[in-house]
Write a protein that binds this DNA or RNA. Sequence first.
DNA 1: TTGTACGCGTTATCAC
DNA 2: GTGATAACGCGTACAA
Lengths: 331, 331
Amino acid sequence: MSSLTDVAKAAGVSIATVSRVISHPDKVAPHTQLAVRKAMKELGYQPNRVARRLRQRGGKRHLLGLIIPDIQNPFFAEIARGVEDVAYANQFAVMLCNSDENLEKESFYLDVMRAESVDGIILPPINDRDLAVTKIAESGIPIVTVDRSLSNSTIDKVEVDNRQGAFDAVAHLIKVGHRRIGLITSRVTISTGRDRKLGYEQALAANDIAVTPDYIRIGDYKQASGVTLADELLALPVPPTALFVANNLMAVGAIEAIHKRGLNIPRDVALIGFDDLPWADALDPPLTMVRQPAYEVGRAAAELLLKRLGNPNSPSAWLRLRPRLILRKSC
Amino acid sequence: MSSLTDVAKAAGVSIATVSRVISHPDKVAPHTQLAVRKAMKELGYQPNRVARRLRQRGGKRHLLGLIIPDIQNPFFAEIARGVEDVAYANQFAVMLCNSDENLEKESFYLDVMRAESVDGIILPPINDRDLAVTKIAESGIPIVTVDRSLSNSTIDKVEVDNRQGAFDAVAHLIKVGHRRIGLITSRVTISTGRDRKLGYEQALAANDIAVTPDYIRIGDYKQASGVTLADELLALPVPPTALFVANNLMAVGAIEAIHKRGLNIPRDVALIGFDDLPWADALDPPLTMVRQPAYEVGRAAAELLLKRLGNPNSPSAWLRLRPRLILRKSC
DNA sequence: TTGTACGCGTTATCAC
DNA sequence: GTGATAACGCGTACAA
């Protein structure tokens, strides 16, 4: 409510001095500083972030943008927490939006964020050549992609070794005796789905198992598609004995589909999911999953972005984290 | 990047006219309007939301604040979606923050939101006499509380009939034969925990069952406390035969604790949770829960807030939604 | 060390 | 119907 002007008046100094007390305290005489701080306290002064952002040049506006496909997916929620914790620690606020895997919505929010003068944006691109993102990046706003990445791009990124994660999962399935392994993943235009499929294929190849095209299904990372696709797989004349489902929500869907058929996990069908879930242990049965360090991804991305703000011209950074297969009871 | 000035220059008019084309198109001659719109398109002009917010008075700034305890709780994530969908439909952006049930953090974010000149704020207060919230409300920023509410307050609110929900759950437990029923809820300073406890007590009373103080445990709505407290309850000399756990995460924790003791749900211990979970069907066993219409809560709150912005002096609104007991297999 | 004055991109109030 | 111009609250050259 009170502004610089009010504080200046109360302290008997100019607004420039008050401003300096906030931004460059070392350039103000100690006793003046004291008087100003006293006035600020008395008036309950809070700098107006909007006015400040209007004036400030990039990197000091204390606002980050975060666009994720769906906050209801625990994986993205965990990333969001990682981002927010770093932001909070640095007095940054976060503007969070859900794109719903919808290019138009993403584009709208990207515009909003530019119009809001955010210092930078963190997001998993909707597909691997997301034009809207590329354009925004070229306009000079620092971007860090997380989870998924852009092809042929020099944008900062934090990703997880999805190929390796998938490879480990499928290799484990094979080790415990399975040879007919179904895969539920995403369209290949999403880098994560593509890489997880690659890991699946490589694990089969490494064990001299031929790929059965019919065992591969393409979903949309949502629970419902997990139900449908798992059911399709199970309805095959010669169904798989194990399923590798390349995302958390679809894995839950698969559990439901399997149960609905009266089948037992892992006796009748083994199952490994991806991304992990906070309640994986309470599922029926406790679900073996490839865990991504999602919090870490968010944290690292925010730190990368903050670093980039201080160093606009440093070479682009690329972080790759390792996933981990968490053995529980579903295979 | 381009501003009103650029557009004005390109269109050969003054900035005032350009501004009018955006805000009051009816006050501009059709042909001038055309020229201006053409220039805007050519320059890819996007209004600067920051500058706009600096000038605009309340209600037209197109920014909402949302502060929730924890985005990783699916219940709050669902509320957030409800809020965001309404916001998006009205071209509002949402600034989302996590308070972690921490008064200091909440207070910080409240300040940030005021400093960001949000049009209004939606939040579940951390406790029922949350001073920081009251103060912000008195300063004139429209607030809508959701889920939890403030005592003795005239602030707009959307709540759920928690007493009724708890009553239904416990009554059902009694109906299927239980008389020793444990309760895990929150501190009474949170209205939801208090009301759910009340419903529990009323259901017992209605069936002439005395309250056993030892059967009532106070948690913090997080998974870990569900594990600990359920374990304590089960370790009692005469343990309860059924548990009513007044929140989703603690219910998941309770499942884990029960399993860890090698007990079967519902044969050895029956269980009903609260809030619901998208994965309730995939849990072991599918968990009976009192479902809150969380998306609806968020939607209604955002709509209430938007309405309030247009009508600052209308009497305060108070919405109460009904929860529903969803029977699955845990009791 | 401190103060004056301008500009950030808008909106709104005047005149014309 | 349109154009100057004064705010909004702040940061920062530049002057003192």
